[in-house]
């Protein structure tokens, strides 16, 4: 039983136990998908504060819509889709902070090669970045990405191909992105 509604004041014992149940449910989701949501959000918005707020919004959607999942893959795909949409909304309304903690961390850790690649990925259009993320980070095939992003498989394949070509141009074959 994932969670319950809030409760009356006179039912404080029940309240505590039911709140705990909801808390446990959300902790389970964060354990399974927390990094996944944060990383996909970051791939769109490029800063941690916005990514964290998107993570919160995804959990709110999960609670308010209470979708019934047929499988863990279905749950994962739903969560990625919602994360992508919330991230795009945030970009659309131009609410983003102008920081990039990931790049700062890569530089601080002297991972210049990764920083260089991240900068290259960042410079891609959003429609390329989302395909790159779902393909390389989540390991989805193009048809699966198409289902998540509600687009055609052919469109996704084209974008992936162009994104890789563009990355190769930017990186001047100095680094092999696929390694």
């Amino acid at each position: 039983m994932p969670f319950h509604l809030r409760h009356t004041a006179e039912n404080s014992d029940s309240e505590r136990s039911q709140d705990l149940t909801q808390d446990e449910y959300l902790r389970g989701i964060l354990g399974k998908h927390g990094n996944r949501i944060l990383r996909l959000a970051y791939s769109y918005v490029h800063n941690m504060e916005d990514s964290e707020e998107i993570l919160q919004d995804v959990l709110i959607k999960l609670i308010s819509q209470a979708p019934a999942f047929a499988s863990s893959e279905h749950e994962k795909a739903w969560i990625l889709r919602v994360t992508a949409n919330l991230s795009k909304n945030r970009i659309e309304y131009n609410k983003l902070r102008d920081t990039d903690e990931l790049n700062e961390e890569l530089v601080a850790e002297k991972k210049e090669d990764l920083s260089y690649i991240w900068e290259a990925v960042r410079s891609l259009p959003e429609s390329y970045r989302e395909v790159i993320h779902l393909f390389y980070e989540e390991g989805y095939q193009t048809e699966e990405i198409a289902a998540i992003l509600n687009e055609s498989g052919a469109n996704i394949r084209t974008r992936l191909k162009r994104a890789r070509k563009k990355l190769k141009e930017i990186l001047r074959e100095e680094y092999d992105f696929d390694e």
């Binding site: 927390g34 990094n35 941690m48 964290e52 961390e105 990764l114 390389y136 980070e137």
Partner: peptide, 16 residues
Amino acid sequence: SKYKNIMENIELTEEM
């Protein structure tokens, strides 16, 4: 992939 290496730097911390 290098991309995965990059993304490993983003993690949900206990505090977060």
